[in-house]
Every structure is written in C-alpha cells, then in structure tokens.
Design a protein around this nucleic acid. Structure first.
Length: 270
DNA sequence: GACAACCTGACC
DNA sequence: GGTCAGGTTGTC
C-alpha cells in the first residue's frame, strides 16, 4: 500500500502522539505477520520508553530503550492506527501496543505486512533494511545520475528498485516520470544527463508535494489517525488509464512493467 | 527481465 | 467466473 509519502505521514503522526511514552503491554493477535528472524519477544518491550519513530524507505522503525527496535512494513494494505479505546473485534487486527496514554493497532486485510523486534546487532543484519538504497532526499543531482546512468533496464523498474533508491513505489514512479516527461519503459542507459537531472528534480518535487498532501488514498491507505490523504486528487498519470491528460488532453495509456500497471501520457512523455 | 506466490476484498 | 490492487521475494 503505502510508499514514502504515506509512510512519512504515518511516522510523523505516530511520533506526535507516542514519542516518549512507556509501553504497558504489547502482543501479537496473529503471529502470521511476525517477521521471520526477529528474536526478542514482544513482551520484552514492556516497561520501555519509546525514544522515537523513524522511516527508512517504506519501513517504519520504532526505537525503544534497552537497544530494542521494532520494524514494521505495511506492504499493500497494512495500517498503523492510534486509538484511545480497544477496537471491537476485528479479524484484520494482528498486533497491538498499549502505551500509558494511547494504543497502537496494526491492521492488515491481506496479511502481507510484517512486524519484527530486534536488538541493534540483529537490526544491522536485517535482510531488507541492510540492502536498502539511499533516501531520495539525500541524493545530490550527480549522485542521482550516477545511480541510474548505466542501468540496462526500464527507468521505472530502476526507480522502484529499493536497493537502488528507497521509498518509491508504483504511484510515485509513474508520477515522477510524468513530471519529468520520460517514458516509463525507456532504458535508464538511454537517458542523457540533463534528463536524469530533470527526473531527480521531479522525484523530489512529487514526493514533497505528496507529503504536503498527506499521501494518496487510492484504495486502502489511512494515516495514523485513520484519515485519508489528499494527493490522490492531484495524480497526473497513476490510475488514469483512458482519461484525458491534464496537460495536453491526449489519452493516458496503460502498459505493464515489472508486473505492475504503468500509466503515462504518450504525448507528454518521450 | 518475466512471473507466480503470499492473502483478501472490490468490482465487472 | 475473472481481473485488479500504494509490495516484496523466490524461481525460472
């Protein structure tokens, strides 16, 4: 479900509500979503202070005292929601933490999401986190060009590759490429430096604008308070197959790349 | 690379 | 009944 802007929004919401609180209780209601490889049990969080919550790519990392971290990946339909009261029975509720002043719930209809608890040495070896590429906002234009320049694969596939750059998924790959005027299936190696620099600017602009609008609620995404985002109303390409391009009035086309629906304007994107 | 798999639900 | 869905991972 969520990509960088959605995860960033959730992390900000949760930090504002939970930072500094003490864990009273924590537990899985369904261990199916427990990440394989995590070792300390969830009960070891009890009594610990939540130092802060961080985002790394699409991953959410809760930092607790005692060198413990909890890693959450929401995948397609996962949600982290705050609540004062216990929700009534919900078959999609899989994990909960009670803090002294609020509760945090993990819901996931499709059960693709994962939660794992690690100490710092285990966290350093985490198979997904340890291989993650740089954060988009940390990249200079030359570094961005270097990262994508020689790649012999469609630029959209490279943009969504978490080991090349972290946090971009299907929506923001399509939107960034629209903003840069680049066809999603163009091989990265065929794009000259100026156009790659333009793409870098577009990625940053699109991600920032999406964060400002609290993410895109196309299907399932809700923020930490259970509210929808607004960026779905501003999408130029994603999900607009057959509709008129907002810039040139041509019809938005759909192709499949890397097994994912890909939307672009054949006139604006070359 | 392409493709299926992991799951459930919405929609045609 | 079939298709599709903000993701990742393992197998051709």
């Amino acid at each position: 479900m969520p990509e960088l802007p959605e995860v960033e929004t959730i992390v900000r919401d949760l930090n504002s509500a939970l930072k500094g609180q003490i864990v009273k209780n924590a537990g899985f209601l369904n261990t199916y979503i427990k990440e394989s490889g995590d070792t300390p049990s969830e009960s070891s969080l009890c009594g610990l202070r939540l130092i802060t919550i961080e985002r790394r790519g699409k991953n959410i990392i809760f930092r607790f005292e005692n060198d413990l971290s909890m890693v959450v990946h929401l995948k397609m339909t996962g949600r982290l929601l705050l609540g004062k009261l216990s929700p009534k029975e919900n078959k999609h509720l899989h994990f909960r933490i009670e803090f002294n002043n609020a509760n945090l719930y993990f819901y996931d209809v499709r059960k693709f999401g994962r939660i794992g608890i690690y100490n710092s040495s285990e966290l350093a070896k985490h198979p997904r986190l340890s291989k993650l590429g740089p954060e988009p906002f940390d990249l200079t234009p030359p570094r961005f060009v270097e990262l994508f320049g020689g790649r012999n694969k469609p630029i959209k596939i490279a943009l969504m590759d978490q080991e090349i750059i972290a946090g971009i998924g299907n929506i923001y790959a399509d939107e960034s490429l629209f903003a840069a005027g680049i066809r999603p299936n163009l091989k990265a190696s065929k794009i000259n430096t100026d156009r790659l620099k333009k793409l870098h600017k577009s990625v940053i602009k699109v991600l920032n604008k999406a964060i400002d609008n609290r993410g895109s609620s196309v299907d399932d995404y809700l923020d930490g308070f259970g509210k929808s985002g607004e960026f779905q109303n501003l999408l130029m390409a994603y999900g607009r197959t057959g509709e008129k391009c907002k810039k040139c009035k041509s019809t938005i086309k759909r192709i499949v790349l890397g097994g994912r629906s890909t939307h672009y304007c054949p006139r604006c994107q070359k």
